[in-house]
Every structure is written in C-alpha cells, then in structure tokens.
C-alpha cells in the first residue's frame, strides 16, 4: 500500500549531482552502445535459431535449478549458521562465502576435483552408478549453485540474526511446535530477505560463466547457456552475440524492476 508522503525539497549540492550523473552515465553507455548495435531486421531469425533456443532453455534450467537447490539446502544452512553454535563456525561460514570472492574459473576447477569423474566424491559416484556430473546439464546446475547460493545464505543469515527471537518464544507459548514456529513466524519475518536472496541467487546463476565453462564445458544444446553462447558468438557471429546480450539485459532488467516494486517497495 502506498502512503502519500509530503515531499521535502532538498537543495542538492551541484557537485554531488554532477558526480551522480557521471555514475549513472557510466552504467548507461555500455547499454546504449550494445542496443545501438542490435540487428533489428535479423532478430526474429536469430532468436529462432537452435543455438539461441537451446541456450535460453539451458540458462532457465540452470538458474531455476540453482534457486531450487539454494532453497532446499541453502536456507537450512543459513538457519544453522545463524542459530546453532558449533566449533569452527567462522571457518564454515568462510567456506560458504568463498565462491563469492573466488574467480569462477578456480571454482570450476575445484568442482572438477570434487565432483568430477576422478574427484573425491565424483569418482566413487562414477564407480558406483556410472553417472558423470561434468559436461552434463546437472553439471551446469551444480556450477551455478556453487557460485550463486552464497548470496542467499548471507542475506538470509543476516536477516535471521536480526529477528526478535521473543516472537518465536511467544509463538511456542501459544502451542506452536518448533517446526510450526519456523514455518509460521520465523520464515514470514525474514521473507523480504529470502525473496531478495533468491532473486540475487537467480540473477547470479543466470550470468554464471567461468565455473560453468570449466566444470560443464561449452557443448551447444547440452551445457551451453546464454553467457557461453554470447562468448562463442562474439568470435563467429557478432549479430547473434549482440542479440543474445540484449535479450539477457531485457530479462534481467524486467525481473529486477518488477520484483523491486512488489517486494522491496512495500518495505522501504
């Protein structure tokens, strides 16, 4: 619900405004630059091509898969980090956040040694089932999750720390079991953080490049996501590269703007 507020006219220092304009233009220039290159006539043809259709499909699978995995294992991880005391907690938290600062290529290499065909987990898995993660769509999801999930974990963990725990106590005196307290009090109280965390995770997974190409390869139709398709097209088909890039910009901007209004607007 929008509450009408009285606007206070604040005289902005001109120097500040000038620098802010430079900041905004800095973001605008590349976007305008690439939009100016869009081959409007051949767009329908490019988007109908197998390369683009497959890349869109794989990117959706990878990003939605990463969001799903983050929800299932990332949320409990955030809760445990925020609420349970255990040894080596700073180390565990550092481990969880490592993919945020690591070059994605290094992350992809590490994934190979962990979950690859000869990796410490991937090896036994292959021996037992014959299943190979790298260079499959599952590998794309794993790489995306590895790089993107930390965004959800830190956002939600921070929110859980600031929740007034007396609400949870009050709920339990009203007969709510620990699980009900979590479902009906804790999660609703941190829901703005969960939504923005999932959004950041999704956005990061959608743009994921380095870990994916290292761990899952660049196989068109199997592991080639939109960023990988752009990378390849830059060498071979500039028009397609521009078209895919602009497509990603439109999708991302659309999601950011629409979710911002729905979820953050109400809370800020």
């Amino acid at each position: 619900m929008k509450v009408p507020t009285r606007r206070v006219t604040q005289s902005a220092p001109p120097a500040l405004v000038a620098l802010a304009v430079i900041g905004a233009v800095f973001f605008l220039v590349p976007v305008v630059g690439i939009v100016a290159q869009v081959p409007w006539r051949s767009l329908p043809e490019i988007f109908r091509s197998d390369i683009v259709a497959n890349a869109v499909r794989l990117s959706l699978i990878a990003s939605v898969g990463a969001v799903t995995a983050a929800t299932v294992i990332g949320l409990p991880l955030a809760w445990v980090l925020a609420r349970v005391d255990f040894a080596f907690k700073p180390l565990v938290r550092g481990l969880v956040l490592l993919p945020m600062v690591l070059p994605p290529v290094v992350g992809g290499a590490a994934l190979l040694f962990g979950f690859g065909r000869r990796g410490i987990v991937g090896g036994p898995l292959y021996d037992a089932t014959g299943f190979v993660l790298p260079f499959s769509v599952w590998g794309v999801i794993v790489a995306s999750t590895f790089v993107a999930m930390p965004f959800l974990v830190i956002t939600v963990e921070a929110a859980l720390r600031t929740v007034d725990r007396r609400y949870e106590g009050a709920a339990s005196t009203l007969g709510a079991s620990p699980w009900t307290v979590l479902r009906r009090v804790t999660i609703p109280l941190v829901s703005p953080a969960v939504v923005s965390g999932l959004l950041l995770t999704w956005a990061r997974a959608l743009g994921e490049f380095g870990a994916t190409i290292t761990f899952a390869g660049n196989l068109q139709g199997r592991t080639q996501t939109l960023p990988l398709a752009v990378f390849v097209a830059l060498e071979t088909d500039r028009d397609a590269a521009v078209a895919i890039s602009v497509l990603m910009m439109v999708i991302s901007l659309g999601v950011l703007v629409s979710l911002r209004d729905r979820w953050w607007g109400a809370h800020s």
């Binding site: 009050a170 339990s172 005196t173 009203l174 709510a176 079991s177 620990p178 009900t180 009090v185």
Partner: peptide, 21 residues
C-alpha cells in the same frame, strides 16, 4: 515439558503481537 506442550498463557511485555499477521 517444552513450552508448546505447557498450558501456560503469557502476555509479554509490549504485547509482542506478530507483526506479519
């Protein structure tokens, strides 16, 4: 006996009504 299994009604300081409900 866990709090949710006790039959104890509590009015907390400040009321502590759930803000999201």
């Amino acid at each position: 006996v866990a709090p949710h299994s006790r039959s104890v009604g509590v009015v907390f300081q400040g009321g502590l009504l759930f803000p999201h409900l």
